[in-house]
């Protein structure tokens, strides 16, 4: 259990304007429901992604309000909160998936390593190759299992020979823990798999391009408990090589798989901290109410 959570110091990223007020408050216990300043430490020592003052508008709706947080390398961070709190929206900012929604407008700064993902020289194609994503509902393409996994490497021209591609597909399926089940049926359509297998296929598809970060948007919400357990196990293994951001509506899942947890409420980042601390000792009244099941 981390004791640095009481830390009130605001470690601003060097690239940021030091004068910009960072809305972050701390204290022992925030009981004021109206207080929407982020409680807890948003920074980490070895950040993979750094987000500062991110705002998202959908047309008139202010969906994400001034959210700042760091995502550490090789950690699993969970975003939790009641539905409609903006956790998925924020997740979709991280690989600019919100670009595909015409009405969405994203402001603020998001950095991947040292690259500003909104910068001109960063192509969204390149960004998404580096930041992969797994969706709520398994969405395998209507192609064979092999082609599903080979899709990313093919479009990015990552391999030169068929043998290389074969290796890559096998390895990705292996890492996704699916190889035993599909070894003999690589040419069958991806949709012929069960829901849990499909989701692992989508994970294999995402890791085939060897991304640095994997975003998971409620990856288990459409799955049964056994399939869920397998995916959670997989997430734990993947942490070794990847940074994983997972949005979940299940607090137990967040507690099981993540090291840090961020609690979102109506577009605000209310509290962020080590997972253990958030679940055992929430410091914001809203977090506590959510965790104890008073709403959500």
């Amino acid at each position: 259990m981390s004791t640095t959570a009481i830390d009130t110091q605001v470690a601003l990223n060097g690239a940021l304007n030091r004068n910009a007020p960072l809305r972050q408050s701390a204290g022992v216990q925030v009981t004021d429901y109206e207080n929407r300043q982020t409680v807890g430490k948003i920074t980490v020592d070895n950040p993979k992604m750094v987000c500062r003052e991110v705002n998202v508008h959908y047309g008139q709706k202010h969906a994400i309000k001034n959210v700042s947080l760091d995502i550490g390398a090789n950690e699993v961070i969970a975003f939790i909160g009641p539905s409609g709190c903006g956790k998925s929206t924020f997740l979709r900012c991280l690989n600019r998936m919100n670009d595909t929604i015409p009405t969405a407008r994203v402001t603020g700064q998001i950095k991947l390593d040292d690259d500003d993902i909104h910068a001109k020289e960063i192509d969204v194609v390149q960004l998404r190759a580096r930041v992969g994503m797994v969706f709520q509902k398994p969405n395998p393409f209507p192609k064979s299992i092999y082609e599903n996994v080979a899709y990313g490497p093919r479009i990015h021209g990552m391999v030169n020979t068929k043998a290389e591609l074969d290796d890559l597909v096998r390895e990705s399926l292996e890492r996704a823990g699916l190889i035993k089940e599909v070894e003999k049926r690589m040419l069958e359509p991806g949709t012929s798999l069960s829901g849990g297998q499909q989701q692992r296929l989508c994970i294999a598809r995402a890791i085939a391009v060897n991304p640095e970060v994997i975003l998971m948007d409620e990856p288990c919400s459409a799955l049964d408990p056994i399939a869920t357990a397998k995916i959670e196990e997989l997430i734990d293994e993947l942490r070794e090589n990847y940074t994983i951001v997972i949005v979940t509506h299940s607090m137990q899942q967040a507690a099981r798989v993540s090291q840090r947890t961020a609690y979102f409420h109506l577009g605000d980042l209310i509290e962020i901290g080590d997972t253990d601390q958030i679940f055992t000792n929430p410091r914001h009244k809203l977090t506590e109410d959510y965790i104890t099941g008073r709403f959500g």
Partner: peptide, 27 residues
Amino acid sequence: VPQSMRDGSYALGATKSETITRVLLPA
């Protein structure tokens, strides 16, 4: 064709035309 197909392809870094010719049209 469900939007999730397009999302899946975009999330892998495919361009629009790649998504159209390799995912949408076959589907």
